[in-house]
Amino acid sequence: MGEVIVITSGKGGVGKTTTTANLGTGLASLGYKVVLIDTDIGLRNLDVVMGLENRIVYDIVDVTSGKVTASKALIKDKRFPDGRLSLLPAAQTKDKTAVNPTQMVKLCEELKQEYDFVLIDCPAGIEQGFKNAVAGAEKAIVVTTPEVSAIRDADRIVGLLEASDLKNPRLIINRLRPTMVRQGDMMSIEDMVDILAIDVIGVVPEDDTIVISTNKGEPAILDPKSRAGQAYRNITQRITGHDVPLMNLDEPQGLVDKLRKIFGKG
């Protein structure tokens, strides 16, 4: 019996879809059977981040409305053998009311019989799309960036998750810039944990390789040199129960950092 995890954030553009694509790909690399569900109906994106956009025939609404079976609609990622990683894309021409929470619960129940992990990419916002995405989930990952607006929304989401019986959500801090944190111009991991009061499951540094991998449709976790990829690999380890420490986030040092070290304030 698999585990259903929703990836959510409240605010848009903080990296939910990138996170879902990378964690799903990473879990499949570890040998698990994984299915990704894009619940952002009308604004589907997980397919392009995964590089699977040209293979879509059916979507989530076709499945929840009973037009086709889930197994027929799933797109198998050919980077992995025997359909170990699959995607159920969102519908692009309908809106969020085309699916309801009861249908989502049923869909998740069905998929977790066959898959080890069901990852749900939640849309931004707190309306119907959010309610659909969390309905069938057993665990939640909240993605935020070190900004006032994103953290405020994450706080609201944590409250709503707890109200929908998704206790103990885990936090991913995305796009952290260690140099700015050191300069006192960006909130640190500790600052954000203090404020949100939930456990951190990973910290992903700002990394240009994410842009490049998204351009290509190949999740950065497949790139052994990507620092964000390394952060995502660590998170997949933690999801599967391994206790790995947070990676060293320090960037290659510039002159100012070196000077600061000399004066002992590093």
Binding site: R152, R156, V181, Q183, G184, D191, F263
Partner: peptide, 24 residues
Amino acid sequence: RVFGKETGSKSIAKERLRLVLVHD
């Protein structure tokens, strides 16, 4: 900044966030 004194904008962010969350 070179000498590591806290003059950054992070403390402003934290204080604003604290207040907004209290109300939220």
